[in-house]
Design a protein around this nucleic acid. Sequence first.
DNA 1: CGTGCCAGGTGCCAT
DNA 2: ATGGCACTTGGCACG
Lengths: 304, 304
Amino acid sequence: MTVTSVHDPSHREALWELEAAFERGDLITAFGRCTVSYTGRAASELGSGDRLVVLKPDGAALVHTDEGRTPVNWQPPGSEHHAAVREGRLRVRSVRSSPAETLTVRFSDVHQLSTMTVTGGRDLDLHGSEEDLRTRVLERPALVDPGFEPRETERPTSAGPVDVFGVDGAGRPVVVELKRRRVGPDAVGQLDRYVEAVREEYRTGGFDDDRADTDGDDGDVHSDGDDGEGDDGDDDAGSDDDDGDGVRGVLVAPSITDRAAALLADRGFEHVALDPRPEGTDGDGRVSDDAGADDDRRGRNDEE
Amino acid sequence: MTVTSVHDPSHREALWELEAAFERGDLITAFGRCTVSYTGRAASELGSGDRLVVLKPDGAALVHTDEGRTPVNWQPPGSEHHAAVREGRLRVRSVRSSPAETLTVRFSDVHQLSTMTVTGGRDLDLHGSEEDLRTRVLERPALVDPGFEPRETERPTSAGPVDVFGVDGAGRPVVVELKRRRVGPDAVGQLDRYVEAVREEYRTGGFDDDRADTDGDDGDVHSDGDDGEGDDGDDDAGSDDDDGDGVRGVLVAPSITDRAAALLADRGFEHVALDPRPEGTDGDGRVSDDAGADDDRRGRNDEE
DNA sequence: CGTGCCAGGTGCCAT
DNA sequence: ATGGCACTTGGCACG
């Protein structure tokens, strides 16, 4: 049995179905007239109306109206669903602790209640994320700067992990912050924190013990062979070569807003325009070159 | 007719139901075995499996697995839903432009398809947001600082709108940034940008023409009567009274992380611990005092 | 579990 | 439309 469905069930019927579905670990949808109360990190009340309520076996709960991508109310995974009949209404309650939160849906009428057994994979294969951008940068560092040499990814600093850290042609340390989309002032602030942290690090003599003691296992860039060129850029740093303090800050993103650009200039940082996905993939995802291993879209009859 | 539901429909049947539901402006749920393709700002592929697909009349589309609060794939409101039978599968496609994005769901089997007419309100009454925190601060400015006098909310600066702007007992300008929850380094960066903008503003002589020309209609704090006290604080600013440049920065939030606190101290700013909801409302939402106009939870029988 | 950060973030409201 | 920001942000990875 994969799907059960009851129309206009009595509250007792609905309760029975719900508890059986909880037991089975089914996905549940309930459509009916209800009010919704939430209390926890915040608190909310929603007056009576028809809504679609989705209860997942992992504890997630969603209350959807006919509008919006975001549910009006919800409960994250890890909650526990309970059902009961109280004061003539079917009460579905989803509770979690830490933080303590309760979502209560009170149905005056259940128009339809369905339960379904879910099978099959849920692994999404996604392209175009920041990780893809990082890959692009690591594969072709010249896109960032002619002489750029990546040395480490997720390089730890006192201000947090630097996306890509390396040196330029002149041996100056370069802090690269990656963003998959157009950036605003916040990204500049982020870059600024990282650059300042690295500068401070160099100032106090290379080792502030800020860098967590990862033994080059995780974040190191694939060594291309040439190591004997100035191993950690400790010699050239500290002198005010160009601007700032010898440490360059580079924001790699498709584009940047005016305010962010102003802030960036103020800090003496740079912006490099780069897309997370290489050229040839436009908004519709058509790949001009690189005929990938896509075996679903073959017959291109795209009407309707 | 509010709800229609078909079990294991043929693709033709399902297609018929779908198009009728589109026509009626109904909310649609489809449960079945499908693959999902998305392309637009990014691109993704999801292999075959059972999923719950929700199609809303406003154009929103959701694809849910049995896990997570967030749909594996989706389309925001404003999209257009289309259905067709292609290559022996039921294809549901949701398309939007700007940005150009397409979500395609291909059903090999539809286990259940339901359509529902939605009526009733969707206005959520939410408490505990940043706006509530602002209200608290405006009603009791002393919570921020003994002599604090709010002057303006959403005060425009070259760096963006300042949550609350005012003066302290010594007549110094105060920039207040509000956060409804525990803050990290980003919030300090935000406050820093605002304070710097205000300082620059004062430095260049009160009017940099940064402040957008809102004629005191929107952001002004309710005038309490006393206006003849130094109308815009132009006299005392510019002298390095305490630290920084005579402009104070205050981060109002329930709590703050260590890193953020360090940054805050570095900038010479302050943290004021304040909750968006007044004392007496704990995590479970029980209000100790202030018996509000809540008329739903009366009989407190809270078992199961 | 808290800290920090990315996300196809979404949503709201401003210019 | 773009911009800046809040959000019960959610989700993940790491210390």
